[in-house]
Design a protein around this nucleic acid. Structure first.
Length: 592
RNA sequence: GGACCCGUAGCUCAGCUGGAUAGAGCGCUGCCCUCCGAAGGCAGAGGUCGAAGGUUCGAAUCCUUUCGGGUCCGCCA
């Protein structure tokens, strides 16, 4: 018994088709699909096989369909098959075929829905990768959730997934962080210097004025006393303090980021440091590698069209032939002073990921990195790898109907922690996954905490809680062990034949299909919608029991029927749980 | 000037890689608790899928053009 009834039926359809059209090309057979019927009136499943095969077979679709129907009605699982429309074949399974899935679900438990479409392909999903210069904010949150769920999803679909975070701990912004932290240090040891006076001494001016660096200054003061300043507590030469301050600031920022992520339920496998990579000379090695492929040249770029910067002047730089791989212009790898660009370092980083053994690289980035996608995919292609980029569009946060605007400069941005404190990690994660990632979304705080159907988090959790409630009641009514998977799996199930019960079983049966489809499309949000539909089927059945006593899950005088219904409830709870697990949302046992 | 993303019910959004009569929630109109949690369910109204061409047995989905909204655009990371 397979876990995926749709895949099983597809195999049978293809086999039948091969008899009807003996020399069917494999690429045509590959296009055959068996999908859930959109309209239950059509049946349970539909296949496009006849239409796909018509042209190569030089037959009419309806003719092939008629022969397919003849072959399929002989299948013991098939109740009826019929040709329809331009050449669809609709299939209705016997209730027994759906019922037989329940023992499989209960036996497989969380493993139900797992797939091997990934074939162990090694995938590296990189997400969050926020600069360690301050706390995570709303903008990072969506990428964190989407990346994490995608990684879980692909794992379930049979990919070998590594979750990774790239730490941008080199470059100008870290110098700026160090200066800002140094200011908080001077503040902590008590100096007469004003912020303005200090700012004048900082190359490029003082940035990162947020209060979150105060603890860094205090920690430095506690660890080093006045040793990082001059005798009169003024600014010392950078050689005296820069490295010490930088290390403290970086480690504290990173620790706080990881702490926030942990609250969100995100724990990554690998944290890669840009600085460590640069220290190994990885960038030079990578540039040489590209040069050997003839993809590097010294040249001068055209000024950007539209708005030309005032101080534009043509300069010769080391350029990568990104245009050969679909990018719009060639991209600089070295600045005119010979130092490496961020892009060059990032290529080296992606080369490193490939070198560590990844067949597919996936970067989950924010919408503001849109302009970066082509050049990076080009570079990875040049290195012989594959990079897919998921761009997460902007999230607008609403509270009480009003947009919460964030201003980084004023230090009034909404931190991830603020959001988590307000709505909790489960609602944050679920809600962030209720939109496809390349569409902008509104995050309505009031809706995310609402205890009504308009809140999908609640609705799905409620379905699970109701399942658990029934299972608890079943143990009370029929004794401990009444809800054991093995006991349920061995019972008779043919009493499950009401439309609402069948609808629920069919939804459960399509879970493996949903996992595969979502994983291959890299669309974790589909899991949220699947669970919503599953919850809806369950709530419907629950309410049917109010009108029709025969549909109540627990009936003391009918233990056999009750056991079958409990098996269905247990299977529903199981799929809800494993779907929530993919999303990183904890199921609840009861609502309160 | 260019690149990328999005235009689907009054509002917020799905639409399973091209399939049949385009779906859900909110809002609106009516129903359903002596009964496993009504924090739920059922029914109704509401659409030229931004627009125009094209591709084919078949388009919300793919291509071209166009109009709106968003993001971004030399050696910043």
């Amino acid at each position: 018994m397979t876990h995926n009834l749709f895949a099983a039926m597809r195999d049978r359809v293809v086999a039948a088709l091969a008899v009807i059209v003996p020399d069917l090309p494999p690429e045509v057979a590959a296009r055959v699909e068996v999908t859930p019927a959109k309209d239950p009136a059509h049946g349970d499943m539909a296949t496009n096989a006849a239409m796909v095969a018509a042209k190569p077979a030089k037959m009419k679709p309806t003719e092939i369909a008629a022969q397919l129907v003849a072959a399929l009605v002989a299948d013991p699982d098939v109740a009826e098959a019929a040709s329809a429309g331009p050449g669809f074949v609709n299939i209705r399974l016997k209730p027994a075929a759906w019922q037989a899935l329940l023992p499989v679900v209960l036996g497989a438990a969380e493993a139900f829905g797992q797939s091997d479409v990934g074939q162990g392909t090694r995938v590296n999903v990189e997400y969050v990768s926020a600069n360690p210069t301050g706390p995570l904010h709303i903008g990072h949150c969506r990428g964190a959730v989407v990346g994490d769920a995608l990684a879980n999803l692909m794992t379930k679909a049979g990919f070998a997934v590594t979750k990774e975070y790239y730490i941008n701990d080199a470059g100008n912004q870290i110098a700026a962080l160090s200066w800002a932290s140094y200011w908080r240090y001077l503040e902590a040891i008590g100096t007469g210097l004003s912020e303005e006076a200090f700012g004048r001494e900082v190359p490029g001016g003082l940035q990162y004025r947020g209060e979150y660096l105060i603890p860094v200054g205090q920690a430095l003061a506690a660890a080093h006393g006045g040793a990082l300043a001059t005798a009169d507590k003024a600014i010392a030469a950078p050689e005296v303090w820069l490295e010490t301050v930088r290390e403290m600031a970086l480690s504290m920022m990173l620790a706080s980021i990881r702490e926030d992520l942990a609250v969100l339920g995100v724990v990554q496998d690998v944290y890669s440091s840009e600085r460590e990579l640069a220290a190994k000379g990885a960038t030079d090695v990578t540039i040489d590698l590209l040069r050997d492929k003839g993809l590097i040249y010294e040249g001068v770029l055209e000024p950007p069209k539209g708005k030309t910067p005032e101080d534009w002047e043509p300069r010769e730089q080391t350029l990568f032939r990104a245009t050969q791989f679909g990018d719009d212009v060639d991209r600089p790898l070295r600045k005119s002073d010979g130092s490496a660009t961020y892009f060059a370092n990032d290529i080296a980083y992606h080369a490193d990921k490939i070198g560590r053994g990844s067949d597919i690289l996936i970067d989950v980035l924010g919408a503001d990195h849109g302009g970066y996608v082509k050049r990076m995919t080009s570079a990875v292609k040049a290195l012989g790898g594959q990079l897919d980029v998921l761009l997460c569009q902007i999230v607008h946060v609403l509270k009480d109907g009003q947009p919460l605007r964030m201003s980084k400069r004023a230090g009034t941005f909404i931190t991830l922690r603020d959001l988590l404190d307000e709505v909790g990690p489960d609602a944050v994660r679920f809600t962030m996954l209720t939109r496809k990632s390349d569409a902008q979304m509104e995050f309505d705080i009031n809706q995310a905490v609402a205890q009504t159907r308009e809140n999908p988090v609640f609705y799905v959790q409620y379905a699970h809680a109701r399942c658990r409630s029934v299972l608890r009641a079943a143990e009370e009514m029929f004794g401990a062990g009444a809800t054991d998977g093995a006991a349920l799996a061995n019972g008779a199930l043919e009493s499950l034949e009401d439309e609402a019960e069948l609808a629920l079983m069919k939804r459960i049966a399509s879970w493996p299909r949903a996992v595969e489809g979502a994983a291959l499309a890299r669309e974790p949000h589909r899991i949220a919608f699947f669970l919503y539909d599953l919850a809806s089927d369950f709530h419907m059945l629950w309410n049917r029991g109010r009108e029709d006593a025969a549909l109540r899950f627990l009936q003391a005088d009918r233990p056999g029927e009750s056991r079958a219904k409990v098996a269905l409830v247990a299977a529903t709870a199981m799929v809800l749980r494993s779907g929530l697990a993919v999303m990183g949302v904890r199921p609840v046992e009861e609502m309160r």
